[in-house]
Write a protein that binds this DNA or RNA. Sequence first.
DNA 1: GCATTGACGAAGG
DNA 2: CCCTTCGCCAATG
Length: 123
Amino acid sequence: MAKTSKALSNKEPKTYTFFEDVYEVVRQIPKGRATSYGAIANYLGTKLSARMVGWAMNAAHNTIPKVPAQRVVNRNGMLTGKMHFETPTYMQELLEKEGLIIEKDTIKNFDKIFWDPAKELAL
DNA sequence: GCATTGACGAAGG
DNA sequence: CCCTTCGCCAATG
């Protein structure tokens, strides 16, 4: 699990395990909850590279079904990636529809709705 | 093949 | 408390 693309650089760079793992976790985030890149990275064992999670999300735009990336924000609860959506406001709208409260591009009560995969999915 | 960048995060000043 | 720097790994120029 969580193998790097280098490890499987056979000639089919489509088996991005790391990316798929990220998508899988993100899709399991319950409605009305949110998590951070670092939390996912921590769950995947690459906590020192939370940036890779964000990088994975960048490619998530082509995945089917679409990954609810709006539920993934930075450790501050800020919608840093909203600019990568179809529209800069789409991310916030989706979250608000799920019952979350966004204030100044930041999720209110983020510490309460925070969903930690390493804890909730804790195996 | 080296330098820069990036949807992050923790630490230091 | 705000801002800067460093680390991490992969992709891109």
